[in-house]
């Protein structure tokens, strides 16, 4: 049975695309045939994060409009043979996504793939609503910051009222919290909402905590999903997140402040 997973947040810039790329790659590395779709029509970026921007020929909207078939539009990942990317259109507008069109493409993909990851655009307009409409699972990406938490709560409302599962009175979408850009040191000093704070406010199951990490920018600079960097804290935290998504019970890491050496204590970091 194919699982459709939406990576969503409401607010922009919290790490949806970074997380979509990392989680899709992680699932594929675990041997699951996975496709990741960019729903940000007009502002595609998943291709850059996945490092396949020069191989984009046809896109999601072309497939919906019948101008290309899925096989022509899907880009096979360089590193991982069971990972594919379906890029967004750069030229159309978000209204190019219709419920019928998106539903048809997802149905076709479901014949071939175990996991379909929908990388949602920010906001609550057509693209974002289409990304979450067909979802079985939602990964609500949130930064420990007031506007992001509030927007995440708004998105939870949408998942519960505007999705296919809600409209057809099916079992509700499984909602997970992915806390990104977390800084344990700042949470400890009371400068940043803690993991527990955000969990308590949003009251959904925690899937993972990704620490604020220099590895994320390095990964996007080079077009390699950060999960591939298994030397980095963020990469390892994403691996743990994928394990939990697959139902394994993995303890949280990188949520305590790392111990600083003697010199760092004196001279600062």
């Amino acid at each position: 049975m194919t699982q459709i997973i939406v990576v969503t947040s409401g607010k922009g810039g919290v790490g949806k695309t970074t997380s979509s790329a990392a989680i899709a790659t992680g699932l594929a590395l675990q041997g699951h045939k996975t496709v990741v779709i960019d729903f940000d029509i007009g502002l595609r970026n998943l291709d850059l994060i996945m490092g396949c921007e020069r191989r984009v020929v046809y896109d999601f909207v072309n497939v919906i409009n019948g101008e290309a078939n899925l096989n022509q539009a899907l880009i096979k990942d360089k590193r991982c043979s069971n990972l594919y990317v379906l890029p967004a259109s750069q030229t159309r507008d978000k209204d190019a996504l219709t419920k019928e069109g998106v539903g048809k493409v997802l149905d076709d993909l479901a014949k071939d793939f175990e996991y379909i990851i929908c990388d949602s655009p920010a906001g609550i307009e057509q693209g974002a609503m289409m990304a979450l409409y067909f979802a079985d699972v939602a990964i609500v990406t949130t930064n420990p910051e007031v506007s992001s938490v509030r927007d995440s709560d708004r998105i939870l409302g949408m998942l519960q009222s505007r999705s296919r599962r809600a409209e057809q009175n099916l079992e509700p979408i499984k909602e997970f919290l992915l806390l990104t850009r977390y800084s344990p040191a700042r949470a400890k000093t009371g400068e940043m909402l803690s993991v527990e704070d955000v969990e308590e406010i949003l009251a959904i199951k925690l899937l993972g905590v990704i620490p604020e990490s220099q590895a994320v920018l390095k990964a996007s600079n080079s077009g390699v999903p950060v999960i591939v960097d298994q030397e980095s804290d963020a990469g390892l935290a994403y691996s743990d997140t994928v394990e939990r998504l697959l139902g394994k019970d993995v303890p949280l890491r990188f949520i305590e402040e790392e111990k600083k050496g003697f010199l760092k204590r004196i001279f600062g970091s």
Partner: peptide, 21 residues
């Protein structure tokens, strides 16, 4: 001693989220 801004954030969020819900 700096004021604990995270707890302010939490309180404000709890109110606004309850309202939204």
């Amino acid at each position: 001693k700096k004021p604990n801004t995270a707890s302010m954030a939490k309180e404000r969020l709890q109110i606004i989220v309850a309202h939204q819900r």
